[in-house]
Computed example of a mutant assay.
Amino acid sequence: MKRIDVTRNWQGSRLDRFVRAHIPGTPFGVIQILLRKGLIYLNGERASGAARVKGGDVVSIDIAESDEASPPPATKPKRGPGKRAVKLPAAGAAAAARKKLRPAAVIGRDIRVLHEDDDVLVLDKPAGVVVQPGNRAERGSLLDSLEEYRRRSARTRPRGGAAAADAAPETIEEPPFPYTPVHRLDRDTSGTLVVAKTRPAARALARAFARRAVHKIYLAVVEGVPAEEE
């Protein structure tokens, strides 16, 4: 059992954030699992992550059990014949891409491209743009812009020419994979949107979001100072 004494400078902090700060390297999702399993105690009692700590409190973590809740170390996926590994953009890739893209590529209604490779497209979605239409008749969504961008990219992509086509064995071509956002942003929310360009990328990104392996940062613009209880 790991014991952590709460000092006065942590007064009023959430329990889950306090624990995260005192066991560095542990994913926030794992801390939430420990709380749900009742392996984190506040003054000897099980508590939720939203509980507030104060100076003099004691936080205890059942280390022996918590090791079982930690995710296994990442291993390289095995690839079958003919399958290509999907390389997801590393942290900071979007920021680096912003510096390189001058002028930035734009999709549809002023939606800037922050990063693009063979598998992934990262967009800067402005406020006021809906990602998915509420019904099929609604037009002007980000999905519409993505489909137009995909078709435009397909037209400009270099081809092997007639000689290459004659040399290639006869195959049945699969329908093109639609560029697919792997998460949602509300209409009035601006921010970074990750889009899968291939089916393997969509699966890999969906797993990353499901495992909470994606680090998200939210910023809000507020006016005035909220009351403490708010």
Rank of each mutant, 00 (worst) to 15 (best):
R14A: 03
F28A: 12
A167C: 02
A201Q: 08
R3I: 15
N43K: 11
T192Q: 14
T75S: 04
D188Q: 12
L121V: 08
A165M: 06
Q32D: 05
A97H: 13
L34Y: 10
V130C: 07
R152I: 00
A69W: 11
Q132L: 06
G128P: 02
R84V: 13
I172Y: 03
R3M: 08
I217Q: 08
R46Q: 06
E68T: 14
T26E: 12
D118P: 08
L35V: 09
A167V: 01
S141K: 03
R102F: 00
R155A: 15
R102K: 15
D188K: 02
S48E: 12
S70F: 13
A213T: 00
R3W: 06
A95R: 11
V130T: 15
S145E: 11
K100C: 00
M1F: 08
A50Q: 15
P24K: 13
E230H: 07
S145N: 06
P200M: 11
D119M: 01
D119N: 14
L142D: 05
R36I: 01
K2G: 01
L185D: 03
A50M: 11
R84P: 02
Q11I: 00
P27F: 05
V86R: 08
W10H: 15
R184E: 04
V131T: 09
E174M: 13
R112V: 12
A164H: 08
G134P: 04
A210Q: 12
R157K: 11
F18G: 04
A165W: 08
Y41M: 15
Y218H: 00
K99P: 02
R102E: 10
L185V: 11
S145A: 15
Q32M: 15
G25W: 03
A50G: 15
L42F: 05
L142A: 03
I63W: 10
D62I: 05
D57A: 08
R79I: 10
P176F: 04
R36V: 01
G29R: 10
V221K: 03
R184A: 01
F28R: 13
D118W: 03
A167K: 07
A64H: 05
A127H: 10
V130L: 06
G140K: 12
N9S: 06
E173V: 10
L146K: 04
T171L: 04
E147A: 10
R36P: 06
A47F: 05
A47K: 00
A204F: 06
R203V: 13
V53A: 06
V195P: 02
T7M: 14
R155D: 14
G108P: 01
E138F: 07
R52D: 03
G161Q: 06
G29Q: 06
E174N: 09
R155N: 12
Y218G: 00
G56D: 09
A96W: 15
L15N: 02
I107C: 14
L193V: 09
F209P: 09
A137F: 09
A201P: 13
L34G: 04
G55A: 12
K216D: 06
V182S: 13
N43S: 03
D110I: 01
V113S: 04
K99Q: 14
D16M: 04
D5K: 12
V86E: 08
P73W: 03
P89W: 05
E170C: 03
T189Y: 11
V19A: 05
P175G: 05
F209T: 02
P77Y: 13
G92M: 00
A164M: 08
G49H: 07
P81F: 13
